[in-house]
Amino acid sequence: MVRLKGCRPVSNSHVTEVLFFVQSPNYSFYRNSNGQGLALSTGVSSQGMQTYAMLSVILFAIIPPSISYEISDKVRDGSIVFDMQKPWDYEWMHFSKAVGVFMYSMIYAVIPQLIAILLFFPVDYPTGLQAAAFAASVLFAFLLSFLINFIVGMSAVLFTETWGIEMFKTVITDICSGAMVPLWFFPEAVARFLSWLPFQGIFNIPLSLFIGKITGTAIWEQLAFQAAWCLALLLLSRLVLRRIERRLVISGG
């Protein structure tokens, strides 16, 4: 049970609803009669909360699909030889694939859903600099989640059985990124810790930019935060790729 700091039970409200955020359009929201409780405690209006929830569902569509199972299948049956002997960089190949999926889900999932939201729900969408920062932040979020995906996926080359690791990654990303519970609902110490991890760059930063929780110079700070993690993970992924290529074993045939 997570205690929501500063969130006092007010009459006619259901604090626990917040705890049951699930990744589905049926997000439950803590609302009270005058719609002020959350605004006072977290600095986010209940309208902002709704936007956050709807958008996080949409953002799930741009997160690149996991490559662990594909890699582990290919290592098992040995067909990874063909991936490893083509004139391409293995990571770049997976990145290009992820970009393809990204564009597909942009056109067929994100944009239609955005249009539907703009038509049927009153949403305050950002403009000008804030909107540009949001777009850039989404791209960084895509890059971050791709890199995490790739690094975890490479472990499949070593272990072949990848279900546990993959599950671990999914749960950690979902919880620590703010996709399920916004980071400002966590206890302060935990929230501060999570804010240093790369995961918050996937959901928390772009969504906070959208609803205007991050403004002014903080925009640049947060974008720089995402960029720095991208760079760090990129270097790590190169290292992992180098190490794991040496340990690749393909037997039979």
Binding site: Q85, K86, P87, G252, G253
Partner: peptide, 19 residues
């Protein structure tokens, strides 16, 4: 081969009969 894989791949063709 493994150091210059990209360039090397253009020079060779590979058939693995079982895959």
């Amino acid at each position: 081969p493994y150091k210059n894989r990209k360039q090397h791949a253009g020079n060779i063709g590979v058939v693995f009969g079982q895959r």
